[in-house]
Structure formats: structure tokens, C-alpha cells
């Protein structure tokens, strides 16, 4: 019996989980789809009466499909096609690898952390917000629009306390080794004259909620590991603590049982086994839901707080079962 960890070779977080699985007496195989077909191989056959039968030949040895009881989707890389082909041929080869190799992995009937369709569904913030509200979470007043005048009316209604954050990831490639990050930011009055640019695509604006501090609550199965983050201590981290890690401190934050249950309920409603929720605690003590990330990082929080993220993930993965 084995846990298949889909990630790249330098993923130190995946290595931690792998070590915990092995420490708990299980077997874990780290596999990067990017290594197919150069360094790993696969042959599989399906018949009317039997599911896919076959073995993945990894650099560490063979892994039969029927030995895989859980799959942990961490940070798999895209397929790496041998160089030298024209781009159109490269695309064809990549797509065939994805549908063939990826398709067989996808057909494994076992525990998935997380289920791929669930990750996709959860990646839509508007869907998250609707679901969270239906489960009783308080939300910031939110506007998604490409209409500059709708934005202006919202900005005025909120008396200028409005933030912008991207709907799809916050990394922006700049070419070469240059990358840009779009952090959650207050929309200052000086940018109102630029609002015509809102027409270009959908933009998400929210009321700027007063913060006492913030919480990253990570749900793993039915366990919630919550960490408080003092984002308000320094100016640079007030709107988005990711913008200035050196300024924030974190601590173990026991959540009220009812809030903990709501974290679990939202994660399960999204079909996820793992979810990282970002919450605000207001000066009056209310918990406000911002978003949930189906594959949020936790490594640095494990280091800072000592909370057992990796071990809890390993324990859930070793239980196996079926995600459906």
C-alpha cells in the first residue's frame, strides 16, 4: 500500500509529509508528472471487467496502480517534453501525455487530497463567497465588475475604504526571471482617475474591513490548525500580510468551536480534504471570511508555531479510502 505524492523533487513540504508517512510505517512515493515520459514510464490496460491495471516505473522502482491508496496533490509540474520539436508538435505531445498519463492517475479510485475537480471548483472566489455566506460566514461587502462607474459608486458608498485583489492568483510573469505579485491593496483616491482600466476585465473590490488581527485556519480532514497573524503591527502588512513576512508574527490561535465547525463545513462543502482559510478578526471580535485556498502553503507556519501540519496530512493520507 502506498501514498502517491504528486509534486516536484525540490518540494520540501512534500518531503516532510513523506517522512511522516514513513515514520508512521507507510510507504510514500514522490512523483512528478513532469518526469513523464523522460524519467518515468507507464503502461496500463483496461478491460470490461477490470479497472486500469499497470505499473508506473519510477526512478525509485515500480509502483503498481493497485498499491496506491491515496494521492496527495501538492505541486506537480507540467509535462516536460524532449526539446527540439516545433512548438505545435510540443503542444501535441504535452496534451497526449496529460490525457494519457494524467488521465490514468485521475481514474485511480482512492483518497485524493485534494480531488482535482474540487480544487478547480474551489478556485472560483465568487463561488467560495456564496457558499461561505450560505454556511453563516460574515463576508466583506464585495463587488465584481468591469464597469468603472459601478466601481466608483461602490468606492463612494464605502467612503474610500475599498481594497482590490485579483481573482486568479497573484503572480504575474514579467518575462525572464522577473515576477510581479499583486497583493491585496487599498484603492487610493489617486487611482480613481485611472478607473477606465476597469473595463478591460473583471475586477474584485471589497469593503476594507477593520482588522484586529488575521487568522490562517487550515482544515485537514476534520482537524483545524489555526494560526493568528498580527498583520496590523506594520504598515506594509496591513492589507496583505504576504507583502511583508518579516513584519508579521504568528501564534497558535484556538478557535471557538462554532468557528472551527464552520471552517470544516466550508471545506467539506467544497469537496476538499484540505483547505486553508483566511479570516479577519475585527476589533469587535467578529470572524470575517476572506477566502479559502485548496492548496495553501503551511510549511512556514509549521516551522514558526510547531503545529503538526505535515503529520496530520500524513495521518489522513494513510487512512486511505475514497474521496467520492
Amino acid at each position: 500500500m502506498a501514498v502517491l505524492i504528486l509534486s516536484h523533487e525540490h518540494d520540501s513540504t512534500a518531503h516532510r509529509v513523506q517522512q511522516h508517512i514513513e515514520h508512521l510505517g507507510g510507504q510514500a512515493v514522490l512523483l512528478n508528472p513532469a518526469a513523464f515520459p523522460q524519467r518515468i514510464s507507464l503502461s496500463a490496460r483496461v478491460r470490461e471487467t477490470t479497472p486500469w491495471q499497470g505499473t508506473i516505473q519510477t526512478t525509485h522502482g515500480p509502483l503498481p496502480f493497485d498499491a496506491i491508496t491515496s494521492v496527495y496533490v501538492r505541486r506537480p509540474h507540467h509535462y516536460h517534453i524532449r526539446e527540439g520539436y516545433p512548438e505545435t508538435v510540443e503542444r501535441f505531445l504535452e496534451n497526449e501525455a496529460m490525457k494519457g498519463f494524467g488521465g490514468i492517475l485521475r481514474s485511480l479510485s482512492c483518497l485524493w487530497m485534494n480531488d482535482l475537480e474540487a480544487i478547480r471548483r474551489a478556485s472560483f472566489q465568487p463561488f467560495q463567497l456564496t457558499l461561505a455566506a450560505s454556511l453563516g460566514w460574515h463576508l466583506p461587502d464585495t463587488l465584481i465588475t468591469h464597469d468603472p462607474e459601478a466601481f466608483l459608486a461602490f468606492w463612494q458608498q464605502q467612503e474610500g475604504r475599498v481594497i482590490y485583489k485579483p481573482l486568479h492568483g497573484n503572480f504575474f510573469p514579467g518575462g525572464g526571471h522577473t515576477y510581479y505579485t499583486i497583493y491585496t491593496s487599498l484603492v487610493g483616491e489617486e487611482l480613481l482617475s485611472q478607473r477606465e482600466g476597469i473595463r478591460e476585465t473583471a475586477h474584485l473590490f471589497q469593503a476594507d474591513i477593520p482588522k484586529c488581527y488575521e487568522i490562517r485556519a487550515t482544515v485537514i480532514g476534520e482537524t483545524v490548525l489555526a494560526v493568528g497573524i498580527d498583520s496590523q503591527r506594520a504598515h506594509a502588512s496591513r492589507q496583505d500580510w504576504r507583502a511583508s513576512y518579516q513584519d508579521v508574527r504568528s501564534w497558535v490561535e484556538p478557535l471557538p468551536r462554532e468557528v472551527e465547525q464552520r471552517c470544516i463545513a466550508l471545506t467539506q462543502a467544497l469537496g476538499l480534504l484540505y483547505g486553508a482559510l483566511d479570516l479577519i478578526v475585527t476589533p469587535s471580535g467578529d470572524f470575517i471570511f476572506l477566502e479559502i485556498n485548496p492548496n495553501g502553503q503551511y510549511g512556514w507556519l509549521e516551522t514558526e508555531t510547531g503545529l503538526p501540519f505535515s503529520r496530520t496530512i500524513a495521518t489522513v493520507l494513510l487512512r486511505g479510502g475514497n474521496s467520492a
Binding site: 520540501s12 478547480r120 485556498n293 492548496n295 495553501g296
Partner: peptide, 22 residues
């Protein structure tokens, strides 16, 4: 940005790009 923050790089707690391979 797939790091744990312990290697001197910037952790990105909201990396969503796990479906590229699929």
C-alpha cells in the same frame, strides 16, 4: 512560489496553480 519560507525565499500561501499538469 512553492517554498516553506525557511530557505530564504518568499512563501506564497495562496499558490493555486496545481492543475497545470492536468
Amino acid at each position: 512560489a512553492d517554498t516553506t519560507g525557511g530557505d530564504g525565499s518568499t512563501p506564497n500561501p495562496n499558490s493555486n496553480e496545481v492543475l497545470d499538469w492536468m
